[in-house]
């Protein structure tokens, strides 16, 4: 493994939750982030994600510092609904939410009049276009979690 990677990021370990219905994407991101010493949880649906979060809370495990979630899963707007549900949980109220979508540009145009309302409604921190690289996700995570790493050792 790359030495500089461990040195520069050793003191900033995060717990990250990926919610995406593409299993290969989940496996790849898990490998990429784990290689940098982060803890990664994955869920293939909104339902699975909520169950996982319940489990983490019940066992007193670290809750995610950051959640990446896909927009288009079971339904076209599953991501938005899920984001809204997550936000209503008090323990997740301040966790950065990053929405990933293969149709972000297309929907962005459609959501022009409604988009701001939807973003506000689900209180998303970022909206990223797919395909997206691990490096880009890492950069976004660093930006959103600046100086925040120590909270969840």
């Amino acid at each position: 493994m790359n030495d500089t990677r461990n040195e520069s990021e050793a003191d900033r370990q995060w717990t990250i939750l990926f919610i995406d219905d593409d299993r290969d994407f989940l496996a790849a991101q898990a490998a990429f982030f784990k290689a940098r010493g982060h803890r990664v949880h994955t869920a293939e649906s909104g339902h699975e994600a909520l169950e996982l979060l319940d489990d983490l809370a019940a066992t007193g495990s670290a809750l995610p510092d950051l959640i990446f979630l896909d927009l288009m899963m079971e339904h076209v707007d599953t991501g938005f609904r899920l984001a809204h549900t997550l936000r209503r949980r008090s323990e997740l109220a301040d966790v950065p939410l990053v929405m990933l979508s293969g149709v972000a540009r297309e929907t962005g145009r459609r959501f022009d009049h409604e988009g701001q309302r939807l973003l506000a409604w689900s209180r998303l921190d970022r909206f990223l276009d797919k395909p997206v690289t691990g490096k880009r996700l890492l950069a976004v995570a660093e930006e959103l979690l600046k100086g925040d790493g120590a909270q969840h050792p």
Binding site: N2, D22, F25, F32, V103, E106, G134
Partner: peptide, 24 residues
Amino acid sequence: VHELKSPLGAVRSLIEVTTDKSLG
């Protein structure tokens, strides 16, 4: 677009893991 991008995104990520040597 979604159906075309999903596999591409997955392949892109799978290759990145390899070039990144995430698994050693």
